[in-house]
Design a protein around this nucleic acid. Sequence first.
DNA 1: CTGTTAGCGCATTCAC
DNA 2: GTGAATGCGCTAACAG
Lengths: 341, 341
Amino acid sequence: MSPPAAPKSVTLHDVAREAKVSLITASRAISNPEVVSKSTIERVMRAVQITGYVPNRLAGGLKSKRSMTVAALVPVISVPQFLPTVQTLTETLDRAGYQLILGQTGYDRARESALLETMISRRVDGIVMAGLLDPLAAVERLRRLGTPVVETWDLTDRPVDMLVGFSHVKVGSAVAGYFLAKGWRRLAIATADDHRALQRRDGFVSAVGREVPTVLVKAPSTLRLGREALGQLLAQDPGIEAIYCSSDGLADGVMIEARARGIRIPEQLAVCGFGDADFAAHLEPALSTVHIEGAEIGRRAAEMIIARCRGETVAQPIIDIGFRIVERASTLGAGQPARRR
Amino acid sequence: MSPPAAPKSVTLHDVAREAKVSLITASRAISNPEVVSKSTIERVMRAVQITGYVPNRLAGGLKSKRSMTVAALVPVISVPQFLPTVQTLTETLDRAGYQLILGQTGYDRARESALLETMISRRVDGIVMAGLLDPLAAVERLRRLGTPVVETWDLTDRPVDMLVGFSHVKVGSAVAGYFLAKGWRRLAIATADDHRALQRRDGFVSAVGREVPTVLVKAPSTLRLGREALGQLLAQDPGIEAIYCSSDGLADGVMIEARARGIRIPEQLAVCGFGDADFAAHLEPALSTVHIEGAEIGRRAAEMIIARCRGETVAQPIIDIGFRIVERASTLGAGQPARRR
DNA sequence: CTGTTAGCGCATTCAC
DNA sequence: GTGAATGCGCTAACAG
């Protein structure tokens, strides 16, 4: 008996029957048309239209061992720095037929590990990490499965697999060097407490050669935390000449608080951020900062994964994408001007 | 022959053999332990440890018809307004065992349609849209598959399925009403050109009762566009008393440009944003804006999807989450003060 | 509580 | 160019 026909999901079977071809021919007409005659393709395509068929990628993936999905693990999606990376990552993958599965680790190693396990269970064809992978995580399993992994936004000699990032220590030293070259000696730091921000601080401090007044805020950093941080830094040293902030949002807060206190930037206080957010160039004064090609990181990471999924060898598995200090008005104070106090 | 054992993927088979139980018992011990004796569970769990087994959710999904994935479609991920929604959406879903697949429509109907098709082919268990679904899209197919859909950040009487949002027209009217109640008559608008922002403008204009000077910027709106917009608005009417901006970023730009031009806020010009971004309260002056519970939208949307996947009926399929105007310093100018010029 | 029997929807062998 | 068989890894039905 076959009553009105239950609203069952239409499968390749139905298409094949409608087109009067075998299952496999229908399959090929859809996913590998070069091997099928033109007239057959047309018949199959019409059958697809009529039946309203939508392929089931889960079933295909089971057999072909390729899920056509890639995992992206970020601390939290609202960290503005990673947004351009996630955006181009999604776009580039999409163009190659891959979809991105998002995971938020919440700066928590245990969650990172659990998420990794989840992603493995989904048989993602690749994993892109914002930051480095916890060495204690399911790295061994990933190796055995041969899942391509790209660590990003950081640098190490021994990545789990591939990497596209830059040295945070060098960023810190570079900013410190830049400040020192300007003749500023009374320096300070406002930084988030995440791993990468702390590396930048370490680089900064070691370039300066001594500890400097520091305020640590909980990641992710915000404008509000920047405003608070300036107060705390001035309490530590009222004569600060230049502040390095671990994000542009933080720096924005510092500048707003400075203005509220009647401190002129850059004449009395220089400020440098990190990330070159879209707003940085348009603040008043324009914010000096460290520019990272976040979109490029996402693009490269996607390309690496795609190449490896194709079985190609990735010629350069470690890419140092570098950075550059963008000098704007907030640090334009000349060599040794009359500073505040 | 069995040489060193090829690095093949370990399956439930291997676990069952190691634990000396049947396949299905191993399966149950892992995914439905309440039905299995304690000692068996232990044996299976040890076997899992030994073999390093990770379940293949693709295979499970094929049989159970539940992929445990949910699609989130946003215009572009970097639109700050949607970030809290995406964040809680991901978190809430994750807690229930679902992962989120991200798609970016790029404000493009064709891409939206294609993405929808892709998500259907992945047999996602639910779809969350930022905004309303294009009625021309694969809505019929979604209905037939019974895939739960939640449209968000907007309001309509006839959603495709479920909805959690608010009326943008009402937001616009409310802001206009607020301005008018303050006694301001020379109003202006700086707005992005996306559907929702334009609805807010329509609400604003119809509450005012006549056209007002307007600058349209390409979505997504940014601080830079806000700076430019103020110049253009002042060219249209140098005597503007209050400006409504379609995002807080835009409003930030307007305020910065105003200060650069020596225009005092709110004494000479009132500014109101939209979205209540994390920085809005901490600008100088603090930015008045329209607060939306973005995180709550994500939570509700996730709960709706999860409930429907459990076969529960969602009591309230249309939720108007409302909004509220947050009055801060940027609109604190009193009734009819001496305005600019 | 546990096991046996059947597939889920498709793509990879092989043949023709 | 096309087709038939086989099984990817797992779980929903039933039995026992």
